[in-house]
């Protein structure tokens, strides 16, 4: 029994991280109406960057964010400004095909540099330390990850509703043409949105890189998780995204509890069931 409770708590805690994967995807879709197929590979790029920074400089893994976040922001801004802006506002195919191309390039680029070996970031003692409540033990690292996830989602919410850039982003999402007539440089705004999304990806990349090992080929599974969370949670609601993340995390944990090989499968099946029962997601967006 306590093993099951443990599993579910673990699922909830990783669900926070899944919500972070999804938050970036959802932000980009919300503002640009583009589903970024390179999302997962960009997260993995962030993980490799953290890995490289940590192993070259010998710093603590958590400190690698000092390099990862600016780099991810810059990468996101540049990709949007140089490539993706040319496809915004066209029909659905060009942005999909172009981001798919980027995904393949990133994946194979990483493969070329880092080979297909498993890597993992080492956060030190916190990874094995745990909190004991009765029969239930919860790892401090999982708690740290969950708290970070909630904090970042709250931060995104704050940026969206309390800051000028958030207002401009929401306005541009509503009606890019009129935003431009108000004086907004929409090409810049789109790129800023991508940069913010990539910073969120960067944080989740570092956190996830210590949670489990990764290879250059891990991108698609990250993308699929992010996507499933967005659909489960319903578009346009950031707290819905959190609920979506928790749902997927718990579904995977429960599947893994029944049979370790069923973990990913359980997540996918939960997604299909919700898609059939509630096509607009648990939280229907506005």
């Amino acid at each position: 029994m306590s093993e099951l409770v443990n599993t579910i708590i673990q699922g909830i805690l990783i669900g926070g991280l899944y919500a972070l994967f999804a938050a970036g995807l959802s932000l980009v879709f919300g503002v640009m109406r583009v589903v970024n197929l390179a999302h997962g590979d960009l997260i993995v790029t962030g993980s490799f960057l953290a890995f490289t920074a940590t192993s070259i400089l010998g710093i603590h893994a958590a400190l690698s964010v000092v390099f990862v976040l600016p780099f991810m922001a810059l990468l996101g801004y540049s990709i949007q400004r140089a490539i993706l802006n040319r496809t915004v506002g066209t029909n659905v195919l060009p942005p999909l095909l172009v981001t798919f191309g980027i995904a393949i390039i990133l994946q194979n680029g990483l493969l070329q540099i880092f080979t297909a070996d498993d890597r993992k970031l080492d956060f030190g003692n916190i990874e094995i330390a745990s909190m004991q409540i009765g029969n239930i033990s919860i790892g401090w690292y999982s708690i740290l990850v969950f708290v970070c996830a909630i904090a970042i989602i709250a931060g995104l919410q704050f940026i969206s509703y309390k800051t000028r850039i958030g207002r401009v982003l929401r306005a541009t999402a509503d009606d890019p043409e009129v935003a431009q007539v108000m004086g907004v440089n929409t090409r810049h705004t789109f790129s800023v949105a991508m940069a913010i999304a990539m910073v969120v990806c960067g944080i989740s990349a570092v956190l996830f890189a210590a949670w489990t090992s990764f290879t250059p080929l891990s991108g698609p599974s990250r993308l699929l998780i992010a996507f499933e969370v967005v659909v489960i949670g319903g578009l346009g609601s950031i707290w819905g995204t959190l609920i979506g993340g928790l749902t997927l995390g718990v579904a995977q944990a429960f599947g893994g509890y029944l049979n370790p090989a069923w973990q990913m499968l359980a997540g996918h099946i939960a997604f299909i069931i919700i898609l059939v029962l509630r096509p607009a997601g648990i939280f229907k967006g506005q």
């Binding site: 207002r167 401009v168 929401r170 306005a171 999402a173 509503d174 009129v178 935003a179 108000m182 907004v184």
Partner: peptide
């Protein structure tokens, strides 16, 4: 901008 409040809509005018 339909998801912005009246006040936020007005503030968008200052983007220039």
């Amino acid at each position: 901008f339909h998801s912005l409040s009246v006040e936020e809509n007005l503030l968008m005018g200052q983007e220039s």
